[in-house]
């Protein structure tokens, strides 16, 4: 049996992103030298949404980039289906800038580890911060987010998925729980 629960709807996601935008601006004292880097593909959509929100607060758009981590994964060859490697686009210098990595769900931390390695191959950022929409816990690496939309306690039987209008879905976050049969 599978239990499906909506843990955030469109309005909730919008509120989380507005708050994260404010926190980013506060922590970095403006939008100067701030670059949002989305982790493909969910994180990139969120970074694209944060950009105008930060501009509305500060009157200045932060820089925007994308990383694809496929080539940096530690499980590339363990049952990875047909690989689809997207481009990494960082149209600015990393040196001297505060990079905010953006992802949809923070889970084991392995994706973020891979994204950090990918970033470092392009330069030496002044600082790297991490923004996630959902932190579902269960970390396997010493990695923590600086900005969190919503934290939720999960177990290994759960999966958390963020659906966004950019991919043709209704904005929502769904927590699925597999309940083992009792027989």
């Amino acid at each position: 049996m599978v239990d499906r629960r909506v843990i955030a709807d469109e309005a909730a996601i919008a509120r989380m992103l507005r708050r994260i935008a404010h926190e980013i601006v506060e922590r970095n004292q403006g939008a100067e030298n701030v670059a949002l880097v989305g982790i493909r593909t969910g994180g990139l959509h969120l970074a694209e949404r944060l950009t105008p929100l930060i501009e509305a607060i500060e009157g200045k758009e932060p820089m925007l980039g994308a990383v694809d981590i496929t080539l940096y994964r530690d499980d590339v060859f363990i049952g990875l289906p047909r690989p689809e490697v997207g481009p990494t686009e960082l149209p600015f210098r990393l040196a001297g800038n505060n990079i905010v990595l953006v992802d949809d769900v923070l889970f084991t931390g392995r994706t973020v580890r891979a994204a950090l390695d990918a970033l470092m191959d392009f330069g030496r950022p002044k600082q790297v911060q991490l923004a996630v929409l959902i932190d579902r816990g269960m970390r396997e690496l010493p990695i923590a987010a600086d900005y969190v939309g919503h934290s939720v306690q999960t177990t290994g039987n759960d999966s958390v998925r963020v659906f966004l209008s950019e991919t043709g879905d209704e904005d929502r976050v769904i927590l699925r729980t597999r309940i083992p049969d009792e027989s």
């Binding site: 496929t70 990875l80 289906p81 689809e84």
Partner: peptide, 10 residues
């Protein structure tokens, strides 16, 4: 998460 959705491996 990974952008790989297609089913077939090489």
């Amino acid at each position: 998460m990974s952008p790989s959705h297609t089913a077939r491996d090489f």
